[in-house]
Design a protein around this nucleic acid. Sequence first.
DNA 1: TATCTATATTACTATATAGTGATATGGCCA
DNA 2: TGGCCATATCACTATATAGTAATATAGATA
Lengths: 105, 105
Amino acid sequence: MKLTDAHLEEVARLFGMLAESSRLKLLRALLERPMTVSELIEATGMRQGNVSKHLGTLTLGGFVGREREGNFVRYTITDPTVASLCMLMCSRVETHARQRARQLA
Amino acid sequence: MKLTDAHLEEVARLFGMLAESSRLKLLRALLERPMTVSELIEATGMRQGNVSKHLGTLTLGGFVGREREGNFVRYTITDPTVASLCMLMCSRVETHARQRARQLA
DNA sequence: TATCTATATTACTATATAGTGATATGGCCA
DNA sequence: TGGCCATATCACTATATAGTAATATAGATA
């Protein structure tokens, strides 16, 4: 697959959206089940404005989708690769930790 | 797999290292073959200090490794998941672009 | 030793964005 | 209609970091 500079710019933007623990917390919660903003505030302990802002970012990136339900808005993971990406990176974390541990030993 | 908050912090840091087109350019070049800093400067058009700085970041993240060869330093991709991560995200880019195109149609 | 080359690091400026409090928007109900 | 609730957005401050020019470091060579 050819990766043009424009591709890399966009790929970087998308990685950037996953490069914030707050947004990862939201995604972790949503991987459990779809949730409203109120539920996400409860699940993450974050403030309302902050949650909305990050959800806006994740929506722009196409990672999640919104659906109104009366006064509430329910967010859902719309991108099946989110879990794969996070799991891949997470297993990296552990591999890397083991490598460092081995170097110290 | 359980993802603790500490995990997410670290995962976010690692995603952040991939969230820069300059660093992705370096990785794209290194996926071709291992290269010295001089070759990477040539391949990317970036300045020397900038290349070294980004290589330092990628090394810290365990994505690449360094090996001295006389005056030169050759960098190599040491993490087999780098390619997968970039490819996954890149195919996302195209999927997302198609979705937006369909919405406009 | 002195010196050259390749790479790393430092100090700096400019830019992006996370988090916050306050405010605005939009749907529901009396 | 008016008022309430959930969510979105605005304006702001504080922090992080990309890129740069200059300087430092380390290995090779004479």
